[in-house]
């Protein structure tokens, strides 16, 4: 095995190298805080961050739970709303022309700007957060689903027609299945945005969630706590992402291998 192929193919390398990279970055960060004597409220050392977490682990984990719930709910809602919209767009040129610019506009709105409005409209409960998550992540879902549906090869469509398949059969046995790999690409983009969406929403009108923790600790200059919350957010984002990757592997073994 050559050096290059070991780097590319070995599962040990696939796991080890990112860990080495991460550990290196943390070590550098730590070193910088010591060597330059940086104050903890400016840039806490990794140790300060861990201590801050250990101070109130159950509080932080509860807030993480709140954020997870909002993120996942909003994400699922975005699928429930986004996929049918995509189907309508693919089904008719008229609808595509009618709806597409609207979608673009909604997507172009800076989401931070409407976070307070969502609170005005929907109160202080979890709805404004869920809706915010929905808003940030439904666009990639719509686009990727629509693209996936349209990418069905013409000969497969003709095949099903020559077999006298019904529209329902054509949809479920062919188009939907064929769109799945591209849908997953959209979902993976969307899940990262979803986490960001929940944080933005938690900056206003709430006393829960990691977004609120970050906002609060910023106000009281408790930077280690902010870092702890940010770390939890990153972990959350990565875990959600890899859950999707895993699902994709399980559901679409044919798609990975033919790539």
């Amino acid at each position: 095995m050559t050096k290059r192929s070991w780097l590319k193919d070995s599962p040990a390398a696939a796991v080890l190298l990112p860990i080495i990279g991460l550990a290196g970055a943390i070590a550098l960060w730590w070193l910088a805080t010591i060597v330059f004597g940086i104050e903890s409220y400016l840039l806490p050392s990794p140790r300060d961050v861990v201590i801050s977490f250990m101070d109130q682990p159950s509080y932080l984990l509860t807030e993480t739970g709140t954020s997870i719930l909002e993120t996942v709910e909003g994400f699922l809602l975005a699928i429930v709303v986004g996929v049918p919209i995509a189907l309508l767009i693919v089904r008719s040129v008229l609808l595509e022309r009618l709806v597409y610019p609207l979608l673009l506009m909604v997507n172009a709105i800076p989401k931070v700007a409407i976070a307070p409005l969502l609170v005005v409209w929907m109160g202080f409960g979890q709805w404004p957060k869920v809706v915010m998550v929905l808003l940030v992540c439904f666009f990639p879902i719509v686009i990727s689903t629509a693209q996936g549906m349209k990418s069905t090869p013409i000969e497969l469509v003709e095949l099903l027609r020559s077999l006298n398949a019904s529209r329902t059969q054509e949809f479920f046995k062919l188009r939907l299945r064929y769109a799945m790999p591209q849908m997953f690409t959209g979902l993976k983009v969307a899940i990262s945005l979803a986490v960001i969406g929940s944080v933005i929403a938690e900056f206003v009108g709430t006393t829960h969630g990691l977004g609120y923790v970050i906002y609060q600790s910023g106000a009281s200059a408790d930077t280690p706590l902010a870092f702890a919350a940010i770390t939890l957010l990153s972990i959350l984002s990565i875990v959600l992402f890899y859950i999707l990757v895993l699902l994709e592997h399980l559901l679409l073994p044919w798609a990975q291998e033919s790539r």
Binding site: P153, E155, L156, E158, L159, R161, S162, N164, L174, R177
Partner: peptide, 19 residues
């Protein structure tokens, strides 16, 4: 008037469902 059950069609490409 439409595709018949007793007529089959084979294309230039295999047109297999990849999954």
């Amino acid at each position: 008037t439409g595709p018949r059950r007793d007529v089959s069609f084979m294309f230039q490409r295999p047109a297999l469902l990849p999954w």
